[in-house]
Amino acid sequence: MSRSIDYGNLMHDAMRSLIRQVLEDVADHGLPGAHHFFITFDTMHPDVEIADWLSDRFPEDMTVVMQHWFDDLQVSEDGFAVTLNFGDNPERMYIPFDAIRTFVDPSVEFGLRFETQEGDDDEDDLDEAPMHVDPDDEDAEPKDAEVVSLDSFRK
């Protein structure tokens, strides 16, 4: 009987714990300085809760921005809920941590990317930059967001 250490899942758990800690601090104290987040998540995850019009517009994944306007951030062990503004339309959403594909704080060039799990044939999809939707600008066209890989921080 062969047993091995699953470093991939252990690393993902640690990365999700880091995101949880950061969001808990933001919920308690607000965003410090120029910090802001681009969070890309799987809209098809069974526990994601977003408005129907958002899931229709973003049938696979979506990137939200937490910067100038967000409200009522609540963080739990498994995910977070937040109200974001989409063209003067506040929308409440719940995002489980295991639905997150990327978490980026461009103000300090920090980013996490969760690799696709086994059995997912679309492994190369994460190499593409996610779409960025500015929730404060209803007329803005989606534009590419920069994804920072952990490799860029290794010496």
Rank of each mutant, 00 (worst) to 15 (best):
S152Y: 09
V108Y: 04
D125V: 15
E24C: 07
F41E: 03
S4C: 04
I50F: 00
P96Y: 00
R20F: 01
E24F: 02
P59M: 01
F41I: 07
P96F: 00
H12E: 13
R16F: 05
I50V: 15
E146V: 14
W53P: 00
D6I: 02
L150C: 03
L73E: 08
S107E: 06
R57V: 00
F153Y: 13
H36P: 04
V108N: 09
M44C: 14
R154E: 14
A81S: 15
E138F: 11
H132Q: 08
I95F: 00
E91P: 00
M15D: 15
E91L: 01
I5G: 01
P135V: 07
P90R: 08
A99E: 04
P106H: 10
P130R: 03
G33I: 06
L126N: 12
I95M: 01
I39H: 03
R20L: 02
R92V: 01
D137F: 04
D61I: 01
D98P: 03
M15T: 09
S152F: 10
V147H: 07
S149N: 12
D105L: 01
R57N: 05
K155I: 00
R3V: 14
M44T: 15
E91T: 02
L18C: 11
I39W: 04
T43L: 04
F58V: 01
F37S: 08
D78N: 14
P135F: 04
D52P: 06
D28Y: 03
R20E: 05
A129F: 08
S17A: 13
H68K: 11
D120F: 11
D134K: 06
E138V: 12
P32N: 10
F103Y: 11
M93T: 00
V26C: 04
S107C: 05
A27K: 02
L126V: 12
R113G: 11
R154K: 13
F58H: 11
W69T: 14
A145I: 03
T116V: 11
D47A: 13
D6N: 12
D127F: 14
L23S: 10
E49D: 12
D47I: 02
T116N: 11
S149I: 09
T116L: 10
E49P: 00
F97V: 07
G33E: 13
E60W: 09
V148F: 11
V65N: 07
D78L: 08
N85P: 02
D78F: 08
R57L: 05
M15I: 08
S55K: 15
D151H: 09
P90Q: 05
Q74Y: 08
E138R: 13
D120W: 08
T83F: 01
S4D: 07
G111E: 06
D72K: 12
D98N: 15
L126R: 12
N89C: 09
S4H: 08
D125Y: 12
R16Y: 08
F110W: 09
D120G: 11
H45E: 08
D42K: 07
H29Y: 14
R20W: 00
H68M: 10
S55G: 10
D61C: 11
G87S: 05
D144T: 09
D127A: 13
R57P: 01
Q117S: 14
A14E: 10
D72F: 07
A81L: 01
H35G: 10
E128Q: 12
S107P: 02
Q117R: 14
L73C: 10
L23E: 05
L18N: 11
H12P: 00
R154T: 13
R154L: 15
D105M: 02
E115M: 13
V104S: 01
G33A: 15
L10Y: 03
P46M: 08
